[in-house]
Simulated scan of single mutants.
Amino acid sequence: MKKIKLLLVEDEIVLAGVVKETLEAHGFQISLAENGVQGWEQYLSFRPDICVIDIMMPKKDGISLVKDIRAVDEQTPVIFLTAKSETQDVIKGLQTGADDYMKKPFSMEELMLRIRTLLKRTQPNTTPSPAKTNTGIYLLGSYTFDHNRQELRHEKEQVRLSLREADILKMLAERPNVTTHRKNILLELWGDDNFFNARNMDVYISKIRKYLQHDPSVQLINVRGLGYKLVY
């Protein structure tokens, strides 16, 4: 079986060594970079299936690196690592194009779970459930949402969604006019409903709501104390 190629960009040598050793033990092929400049060089030569990137690094920070990656590659999943926990850092990281965000310190079990969750949505050898015959295309008012392509189209405008955005919108689109509980979304997509993951989800929900603002008949409603409802 082909090994999953993971680019790890982390300037903390001890942490990087632990993550690299653990992931290699689980069958991953790891390319390790110590700063954003090396990270960009290794991204171009290594062509990873997924990236795990620290935000605060010398020479070139993680956000700048991901901006460069997203300029040429909108598909490869990216997980940010950071010691910061302020909301603005989360928002900035996600707006750059990251698919997930983890605060240090973290457990390797949680990192492994998040990596595998993202890979399930990008690896072509993932076997779909036989019960799911949906083409992955949803008509939301005047929008066309293609989950497989991670695209939301409205007339001549097309928005490229991140993996998280596409997966959240899919969960809501499959249950129109019905409240989907926050906890269910968090457990399904993140595997944990802790506070930090909930704040991440709120960022994605806000971005999705902005994408849908061109058609007033399509509304992403916050059902206070419960979750979210997509009405169209």
Rank of each mutant, 00 (worst) to 15 (best):
22 T>M: 12
164 R>I: 00
37 V>D: 13
56 M>R: 14
32 L>Q: 07
110 E>S: 14
137 I>C: 06
157 E>K: 14
154 H>K: 06
177 N>V: 07
96 T>Y: 00
195 F>C: 13
175 R>H: 13
189 L>R: 04
159 V>D: 14
169 L>H: 01
151 E>M: 12
197 N>H: 13
213 Q>T: 04
75 Q>E: 11
91 I>D: 04
182 R>Y: 03
140 L>M: 11
72 V>M: 14
203 V>D: 02
106 F>G: 03
213 Q>V: 11
13 I>H: 15
68 D>H: 09
107 S>M: 06
102 M>E: 02
80 F>I: 06
213 Q>E: 12
158 Q>T: 13
174 E>Y: 07
232 Y>D: 12
13 I>A: 15
38 Q>D: 13
102 M>D: 00
119 L>Q: 07
144 T>S: 09
42 Q>T: 08
207 K>D: 01
172 L>N: 00
168 I>G: 04
111 L>R: 01
152 L>F: 07
188 E>P: 05
74 E>V: 06
173 A>W: 03
218 V>G: 09
72 V>K: 14
201 M>N: 02
94 L>Y: 01
41 E>I: 05
10 E>A: 11
25 A>C: 10
200 N>F: 00
147 H>M: 11
66 V>Y: 05
116 R>P: 02
21 E>S: 05
26 H>N: 11
110 E>G: 08
230 L>Q: 12
140 L>E: 01
96 T>I: 05
218 V>R: 12
30 I>C: 03
160 R>N: 15
227 G>N: 06
205 I>K: 01
68 D>L: 14
102 M>W: 01
206 S>W: 05
221 I>T: 06
193 D>L: 07
63 I>K: 11
144 T>Q: 10
179 T>G: 08
220 L>R: 09
6 L>H: 04
27 G>F: 08
13 I>C: 14
175 R>W: 10
201 M>F: 03
7 L>K: 03
81 L>W: 02
205 I>S: 07
222 N>E: 11
51 C>V: 15
50 I>D: 00
76 T>P: 02
119 L>F: 13
204 Y>S: 12
52 V>F: 05
121 R>A: 15
224 R>L: 05
15 L>R: 02
228 Y>I: 02
111 L>S: 10
134 N>G: 09
92 K>Q: 12
28 F>H: 07
65 L>A: 08
5 K>W: 06
29 Q>W: 06
5 K>I: 00
114 R>Q: 15
201 M>I: 08
134 N>Y: 11
41 E>R: 13
189 L>F: 08
97 G>F: 09
113 L>A: 10
134 N>R: 05
49 D>R: 05
146 D>F: 05
61 D>V: 10
92 K>Y: 11
109 E>K: 10
74 E>A: 12
97 G>T: 08
177 N>D: 13
213 Q>F: 11
96 T>Q: 00
102 M>R: 01
111 L>G: 04
161 L>S: 05
27 G>H: 07
7 L>Y: 09
11 D>W: 15
158 Q>N: 11
124 P>R: 08
91 I>N: 04
219 Q>M: 15
25 A>N: 12
60 K>S: 07
38 Q>P: 02
50 I>S: 01
169 L>W: 00
93 G>R: 00
192 D>H: 15
21 E>Q: 06
5 K>Q: 03
57 M>K: 12
226 L>M: 10
58 P>R: 12
35 N>I: 11
147 H>I: 04
62 G>F: 01
165 E>Y: 06
175 R>P: 05
116 R>K: 13
78 V>A: 09
73 D>W: 04
17 G>S: 14
